[in-house]
Nucleic acid binder design. Sequence first.
DNA 1: TGCACTGGTTTGCAACACAAACCAGTATAC
DNA 2: GTATACTGGTTTGTGTTGCAAACCAGTGCA
Lengths: 110, 110
Amino acid sequence: MEPFEELTSLDKLVHEPARLAIMTALAACERADFLYLQRITGLTKGNLSGHISRLEKGELLTVEKDFDGKIPRTTLALTEKGRETIVAYWEQMERLREAVDRWRPGEAPA
Amino acid sequence: MEPFEELTSLDKLVHEPARLAIMTALAACERADFLYLQRITGLTKGNLSGHISRLEKGELLTVEKDFDGKIPRTTLALTEKGRETIVAYWEQMERLREAVDRWRPGEAPA
DNA sequence: TGCACTGGTTTGCAACACAAACCAGTATAC
DNA sequence: GTATACTGGTTTGTGTTGCAAACCAGTGCA
C-alpha cells in the first residue's frame, strides 16, 4: 500500500487532535485526574468530557470516580489496549514520515 | 506551552487524514493529476474533489484544468504556502513526538 | 442511435467538535 | 439559615465536516 493510502486510513478516534493530546498525556502520566488533564491540554470541560466518553466507549481508557475527602474526583488511565494504540500511532506516524521521504512516483504523476 | 496543548491546536485543514495524504503526495510529486492522486490516496472521486476544494480555498494548492488532446485533465500542485505548510506540519509532528518523550509532569497529575 | 467509459462535481446525510448552559454538592459570607 | 460563589463535571444545541452515492457533460465505438 502506498504510504498516502495509509495516511487516509488513520484511526480517527486517536488521530483527532484533542483525543491525541489526551491519550498522549495519559501515556506519559500513567493516570491523571480530570482537571489536571484539562490544564495541560487546554480543552474546555465540556469538550474534554465528550472526548473522554468517546475514548471510554472505544475501550482506550478507563474512568474512575471517587472522592478526595468530600470533593469528587475523576481519574483517567489508559487501558492496555489504549496504551498499545497510542504507542502504535506514534510509531506509525514516524514510519510514515520516513516512508514518504523515501517515496518516488511509480507511474506518470501528471 | 505544554506539548499536549500544542497537539490540541493542530491545524485541522492539514491534519485531516485525506488532506494530509493529498498534501504529502503533492509535496513528493511536485504536481499530479486528479486520477493519479485518486489512485495513490485510495479516495473516492467525490471525496477527493471535496478536499481539493477546501485546500484550494485555503490557498494551499492550485487547480489547473486543461486538455490532453480531447480528454479533460485536472492538474494539482501545491502553492508556496502549501509547501511550507506541509513541511512545517511534519516537522511539528516530529518535534512533538520528541517533546512528549521527554516530558515529565510539572504538578501532581492525580 | 445507443451504450459504456472518462473525468470530475453536486447533493444528502449521519457523525462530529465545540462551547454554552446546566446541575449537584460544598465551602464561605452575612 | 440563607444567599453567594466555587468545585467538578455532564448534557444540550448547533454549525461544520467527511463521505459516498447520484449526477452530469463530453468522448469513443459498435
